[in-house]
Computed example of a mutant assay.
Amino acid sequence: MSAYSVVKGFFRHRIIQPVLNLLKQGMTPQKLAVTVALGTMVGIVPALGVTTVMGTAIAARFRLNIAATVLISYLVQPLQLLLIIPFVRLGVFMFGLKELRLSLEEMVAMFKNDWLEALDSLWKANLAAVSAWALIAMPIGGVLYLLLLPIFKKFLPSPVQA
């Protein structure tokens, strides 16, 4: 068995099949587009460890499929890691905070110099990053919804209404 077939089987059984199963649950194209857009935006929030709780709460509030929302947020989490630093930089710029050096050596030096000040700086930078995310999440989520809706309308059958 080749490495390619192992990876292909993993993606088929762990990612593609669960997504296809969710699509077969009778969600309308509109609800699916909202679920994917919401899961994507929750999945890139620049605060590690809050996506599951946040996605569950928002999906429950808007009566969306919680499992689908959380699955989508998990699938986009690599983007979360890629976007944390740009969100921090945008938040620092938006709120006029002291520029934060994010290299490992500079962060270690910050903690060696004054660990309380380092924690304070990182806390403020994280809050600024979440604020920057919050400002752009709604417009980007809306655009994502508008892009996905025609695709889902074309490829998903509309559920039969009783």
Rank of each mutant, 00 (worst) to 15 (best):
T35F: 10
M94H: 07
W133Y: 07
G43S: 08
L22V: 03
W115Y: 11
A129Y: 04
L22C: 12
A59S: 12
I58F: 08
F62R: 10
Y4P: 08
W133R: 05
R89T: 11
L149Y: 11
E117P: 04
L64D: 03
L20F: 00
R12A: 09
A129T: 03
K8V: 07
A3W: 15
Y74K: 11
V88L: 01
L146I: 10
K112C: 04
E99K: 14
G9T: 06
A118P: 07
L146V: 11
L71D: 02
P157T: 14
L146Y: 13
I15A: 06
K154W: 13
K24F: 00
V19D: 01
G96H: 01
L23E: 13
A137R: 10
L148S: 07
I84A: 09
I15M: 06
V108D: 10
Q30R: 15
M41I: 09
M27N: 07
L135Q: 10
L156S: 09
T69L: 06
I16R: 13
T35P: 05
S5C: 04
V88P: 05
K98F: 04
S73Y: 03
P86L: 05
V19R: 00
A57L: 04
N126I: 08
V7S: 12
T40V: 05
S73Q: 09
R63A: 03
Q30N: 14
S131C: 13
R12M: 14
P46L: 05
F111Y: 14
I136M: 12
P29T: 14
D114G: 06
I58V: 10
N65G: 00
A132W: 06
